[in-house]
Nucleic acid binder design. Structure first.
Lengths: 365, 365
DNA sequence: GGGTGTTGGGAAAGCGCATTCCCACTGCAT
DNA sequence: ATGCAGTGGGAATGCGCTTTCCCAACACCC
């Protein structure tokens, strides 16, 4: 028993396929009530399920929105994914998921796959890379996206523009003010912390990471502080952990040299370029017997949901992740629907964050 | 410039569409090298992207696998999703995501949508419900799945069988031994905890929750302990938090009555039916000034990744979530591919868990 | 009552591709 | 020279649906 087709339904109802199509799927023309009832009846008895592929082919719109993330199990991405999913549901679209680990080559492949499926929109989250070795893959990604846009697709990018992608119609950006927010965080921390700062960042060339680092440095500079040293590690918990181990070593050495300053206010304040790294760093330090904020202060970035139950409460910059996902999706799938008077405005949605101080940067004697 | 079609490529290459199709997409027949080169060349210049919809329609196989979860931002589900995604990638399939909040009606809808898209397989994670008010929706879900299977689809269910679904071909179950594992956990805890037990469970009728509760009770019984009281709350962090507040009240009252037993071993051991509830409960207790394990012991279930950084380290039952996702997907999408001598064996994959004791249930004076 | 709308329905032409035939042509043995 | 299998390519059909176009029937108004 293969799935029954519209034609079968039509035959059973004694009408033409055209009519059946009109009653079963929203059409401008509404057939008479008698006919409609018969058709619906027939569809019911046959257990008719319309073939979305065929529909998509016929009206060239698939009802699909593609989502590209680095890792769906990362709280940062899964929060965004939730937002995307919500909007998709509201708009009666389905979400196609692709995880790439952040590799531009894989991202390009994902875009191609989405394009092949004629996804109505593509949302691409996760930091772009500006590393030299990724240059070619990035260019290819940009080209792929351009082509997709030119063919009428909409793409929504979270964070920062794709390197090399043109300012095409259908190209939307949800800008995240990483740099100014990081600067603000630095300023705030500098006001209460007299010691020195160290930054744990992702690999050089990860734009999100680089932006945050640059912002933090400039914030420090504005506060009259010297530039902070930057430790590079992978942009996840494991990277944070490693960096934490390195820093633990440092603290130990410093203590040895300066003859035990336990009980004093810690000299070190760590800024990790995202929350999962911060958590990793805290874990690394803890594994060496150090405590936050007793032995070092630490702040992250993103305010992922996980932080809610992390101790000590982690200072961070709150980003409305779910909204970011929603916005990125709305700006793409919505742009066709709610285009009011002027449809063509490049609605680069912007998002605001919020420096959030918590216990991990508060030292109390 | 609409996306170019196979026909256009063929024309440019000076061959028939049939030939173009043969060279661009793997066919049994390999055209000559000269022709092939011309076609590939033409495809390149035109930036040809095959229309997956049309392909799917023509060969009736979409390369899609549908994934149904309650909430993609829940660590439990996102871990499973990661596993699913991995296998999908390996098998060159894309995953379609649907989140339902656990409502059977929505799940049914999602299945229908997947079926409409002719997904090759559907993986459905998240506890089934056996509540009376969900009975009809459940039946409809089962019917929808049956139909999907009968039409040649494969479905993989995580956890427990769908109520009312037949033992069809193409119906695969990744069984999670919730009950025995919960029993084992109860036994282990009973060995070291002399006080009494309370269970925080999801709403009555959530099968996963009910299984774990039943298992825990039977484990207690085997250890000669009385049945534990069961607090019902929603099956997420918020539910756990509420229950935590209730228990805080209890502890306070008990202390008042029995004249301060601070410093003594806590009398209460809490079993939460999953980790996020356990975390919520811990947060609730903490908000009232109580500490784990000082004032109460607590254990969860699942061993979600988040636990890694949760303090106190939470006792739980480790479940290989990512593997579960992998298995569920493999058993469905793989069953067509790696069907050896006998293709029809009902490979109900099983998974093993592991009681994992950590600090949250260890009281030290 | 014959025009002119207006409606309700069907016929048919694709959407872009895979695939089954079918044909022309080659090389080889007879 | 004639037969044959084998081979490389094209024509045509169909996947399941939407949509335009067309036709019949019916009501309406002068």
């Amino acid at each position: 028993m293969a799935a029954s087709t519209l034609t079968e339904v039509a035959r059973l109802a004694g009408v033409s396929p055209a009519t059946a199509s009109r009653v079963l799927n929203g059409s401008a023309r509404k057939p008479g009530p008698g006919v409609s009832e018969r058709v619906r009846q027939a569809a019911e008895t046959l257990g008719y399920i319309p073939n979305a592929q065929a529909q998509a082919l016929a009206k060239s719109s698939s009802g699909l929105v593609g989502l590209i993330v680095h890792d769906i199990a990362d709280p940062y991405f899964s929060a965004i994914a939730r937002g995307v999913q919500e909007v998709a549901r509201e708009q009666h679209k389905m979400v196609l998921l692709a995880t790439t680990g952040g590799t531009p080559a894989d991202e390009k492949e994902a875009v191609a796959a989405f394009a092949a499926r004629r996804a109505d929109a593509i949302v691409i989250a996760g930091s772009r890379s500006s590393r030299p070795e990724d240059e070619q893959a990035n260019a290819e990604l940009a080209a792929e996206l351009d082509r997709y846009c030119r063919n009428g697709g909409h793409v929504g990018v979270v964070g920062q523009a794709i390197v090399g992608a043109g300012a095409l119609d259908g190209y939307h950006l949800v800008e995240v003010p990483n740099e100014p927010l990081a600067a603000e965080l630095a300023g705030t921390l500098a006001a209460s912390h007299a010691g020195h700062f160290v930054i744990i960042g992702g690999p050089e060339g990860l734009i999100t990471s680089d932006d945050r680092i640059r912002g933090f440095q400039s914030g420090l500079a504005s506060a009259g502080r010297p530039e902070a040293e930057v430790l590079r590690a992978s942009f996840n918990r494991a990277g944070g952990y490693e960096a934490g181990l390195v820093l633990a070593e440092r603290i130990r050495d410093a203590r040895k040299a300066e003859t035990a300053n336990e009980g004093e206010k810690p000299d070190l304040c760590i800024f990790a370029a995202n929350d999962v790294m911060a958590i990793g760093a805290a874990a690394g330090l803890r594994s060496q017997g150090f405590r936050i904020p007793r032995d070092a202060l630490i702040a992250g970035f993103d305010d992922i949901e996980t932080l809610r139950d992390f101790r000590p409460a982690l200072s961070t910059v709150r980003l409305p992740l779910e909204d970011i996902g929603r916005l990125a999706t709305l700006s793409t799938v919505g742009s066709g629907a709610l285009g009011g008077a002027d449809g063509n405005h490049d609605d680069g949605a912007a998002v605001t964050g919020q420096v959030t101080l918590r216990r991990s940067t508060e030292w109390t004697p």
